Simulated assay, not measured.
Amino acid sequence: MDVLVYLIIGCEIGFWVLLAAGLGARYLLHRKRLGLALLASVPVLDVVLLTAAGADLARGGTADTVHGLAAFYLGFSVAFGHSLIRWADVRFAHRFAGGPAPMKPVKGTAPYRRGLWIEYGRVLIALTIAVAVLLAMIQFLAAPGEAAVLWDWIKRAGLVAGIWLVAGPVYGMFERPAQVAAPAKPGVFVPPRERHR
């Protein structure tokens, strides 16, 4: 298996380890500065991955699927990393620090649809970052004749954007809120003996 594959897996594991350690330090050990430092170090993983992918090509490595995967992972990590940290922080605070319970918008409502568009905006940011990294690899690092596989990943970015648009916010525009059964109107209590008279 390519070293970059191991590095991508390591970065993903490292993200969750740093996230758990940072939130644990903040809420369980009550060491806010340590927790903040651990959470702030999460982007370092992205820098390590980007540097490793670029260095691999610069030293003569063949551009292949793994480099495209690394670019996509980097884009989604940057675009979604902060929201994932915030998502976990709310739940950790609720569980261990008496914070408010996390709120989830009801499907079909305006807040739910707005959330789908916000999520899609992050997807576009992720794909923009991935495409920028891929173009930089093509322009500065890939050897002549090796760019085709990286161009294929750029085409995949457009495909992902289209599929996510249709399956996410466009589909969500047609979802309707679940119908909540109205409470029964209070009636007059009739004793069992009176019901048969």
Rank of each mutant, 00 (worst) to 15 (best):
F140Q: 03
E194S: 14
M173T: 09
P105Q: 13
G172F: 09
F189L: 15
L45E: 02
F76V: 09
G168A: 02
I13D: 01
L45M: 08
A157H: 00
F15N: 02
W117H: 00
T65C: 08
T128W: 01
I9K: 00
R31M: 11
P100G: 03
L124E: 13
G35N: 12
V180L: 12
V17I: 14
A136F: 09
A157E: 05
V5K: 04
Q179M: 15
G108S: 06
G35F: 08
L124W: 12
I13A: 07
E175F: 14
A126C: 11
V44F: 03
Q139L: 09
V66A: 13
A101E: 13
G99M: 10
V170Q: 01
F174H: 14
G24E: 07
A101Y: 07
P43A: 04
T109D: 11
A71K: 11
A97L: 03
A143F: 01
A97M: 01
G60V: 06
L134N: 01
E119M: 11
L127D: 03
A147V: 02
A178Y: 08
G61M: 06
V123P: 10
L36E: 12
K185W: 11
Y112H: 10
V190N: 10
L29Q: 12
R122S: 05
V123N: 13
P111W: 02
V188D: 14
A71F: 12
F15V: 10
A93Q: 11
V106R: 07
E146S: 09
A161Q: 08
E175R: 15
A110Q: 10
V133A: 05
T62H: 14
L28D: 05
M103Q: 15
R114T: 14
E194M: 15
L38T: 07
K155R: 10
V78S: 00
F189E: 11
A88G: 13
I13R: 00
Y6Q: 04
A70D: 08
A20N: 06
L39E: 01
V180N: 06
V149M: 10
W151P: 00
G115P: 01
V170K: 02
H82G: 08
L28C: 10
I8M: 12
V3S: 10
L116D: 01
V42Y: 00
G10I: 01
V160D: 07
G158Q: 09
A161R: 13
V90D: 02
H82M: 09
V149E: 09
A25F: 06
P183L: 04
F140A: 06
F140R: 03
A147I: 01
M137V: 06
A126I: 12
V3C: 01
V66L: 10
R176V: 12
L84F: 12
L29P: 00
G10K: 00
R113E: 09
L34E: 11
M137Q: 14
A97I: 04
A71N: 10
I118A: 04
L34H: 09
R33D: 15
V160E: 03
A55F: 12
A52M: 13
A70G: 09
A178C: 05
R33E: 15
L4F: 02
L116Y: 03
I85G: 02
L49S: 08
D46G: 15
A161T: 03
H30N: 14
A20W: 12
A182K: 09
W117T: 00
I13V: 11
V131K: 02
P43R: 05
S41M: 06
G145E: 02
R86T: 13
L159C: 04
